[in-house]
Design a protein around this nucleic acid. Structure first.
Lengths: 204, 204
DNA sequence: CGCGCGCCTTGACGAGGGTCAAGGCGGCCC
DNA sequence: GGGCCGCCTTGACCCTCGTCAAGGCGCGCG
């Protein structure tokens, strides 16, 4: 599927579920004013669209993507003989909820630059291509990141510059960021105040 | 269970799931700074806590509540013979995600007073005791509402006053609000600009 | 009956981020 | 190779909401 393609729209009746094989997909809610909130980025291996009444969000291709389609009904019928499939589906579904719950807590409580730090560390954990440590290839553009973190593109741009100026990261082109050592080593403390690292980076 | 009681904590291993029989339960994420984001209010009839790895959120009693406990494992084992149970669980799980997704879109894109209008209309639809139209009995205190809408209590208080001053609603005590006709009649247009109704209410 | 503690309210002030506007930069198509 | 378009950047300004501080109100307990 091509970049930008709508996989399904909110409100549609379902029937098909997907497994993402390659690329990146976003789940989003489209507001009435043209506003958009991205509630999840999905990476290879993840299942999505396994609902039974109505699509609660839209799904769109962030990059070129490859998916496998399944008839949801058939999967469930077979699952009667395969309890592990049921467990898997419920686990995945709950995981989506849990990740979103934490996402909400972050984007509503952190200032812009800390949302970004959290986002990059999250990417490192969930979409790591395992190349050089701290190097992140972004599959999405800045607009998508802004809508994920609930920021405007201008604010995102400024926060990014601020992080670069304080030595937190380096940008290589628009689709690659390199996190500095201190940040890579502290993936669990992404919420820390930026100020704590300013002294370090000033000397670097 | 008494008001304020912790039903389970984030991170705990599960084992038991619940059906809410009476009262109101909140699902929440507790931030590191003591900040709290409430991601869902649950009302009678709803299932919660049916996860299999770790609790992704905490659950606490908003009011006095009555719940039925089930062994999650047993429910799933029985469900092998009952596909409808599986369908039900997956539906519920997806519904939670969908509701939260829309919740996020609202609290990140609407100003304080519109979040409140949306919240009240949401309560009317989901927790309606079917008494007089537009009358809402709040099971939770202002702090809970603030944490649900991602506002500070002060801002909530001010927004509430603003809505009262513009004639959008009337407060009877601290736990009852009465929505005006124009608002009750437009549950789907909760996102409208407040200004549109100011002229109306000024004459009322 | 009165005191005290939570919860809500109100005011003054400041900061972070949204808005508007314009400019740079790169990629793609012709 | 040149031009155009979309995406990102930068600046100036303003507005909403958060913060700090103090006061009111009601409920429960002594």
């Amino acid at each position: 599927m091509a970049r930008g393609q709508v996989i399904y729209d909110e409100g549609e009746p379902p029937g098909v579920m997907y497994r993402l094989e390659a690329g990146c997909v976003r789940l989003q809610v489209n507001g009435e004013d043209g506003d958009r909130q991205i509630v999840a980025f999905l990476f290879p291996g993840e299942l999505f669209g396994f609902c039974l009444d109505r699509r609660s969000t839209s799904a769109e291709a962030v990059s070129e993507v490859e998916v496998t389609r399944f008839m949801t009904r058939m999967v469930l019928e077979k699952s009667v003989a395969r309890p592990d499939v049921v467990v898997e589906l419920i686990n995945r579904s709950n995981a989506l909820f849990g990740v979103l719950a934490h996402h909400v807590e972050k984007i509503t409580h952190l200032p812009a630059h800390e949302r970004l730090i959290w986002f990059f560390n999250w990417l490192l954990r969930h979409a790591d291509d395992a190349r050089a440590p701290g190097v992140i290839e972004l599959p999405m553009n800045y607009r998508d990141i802004a809508d994920f973190l609930s920021l405007k593109p201008e604010t995102l741009s400024r926060a990014l510059k601020q992080l670069e100026d304080t030595g937190y990261l380096v940008r290589r082109g628009q689709r690659t960021v390199v996190l500095r050592q201190a940040c890579v080593a502290l993936p669990l403390r992404a919420g820390d105040r930026l100020a704590a690292t300013q002294a370090d980076s000033a000397t670097g």
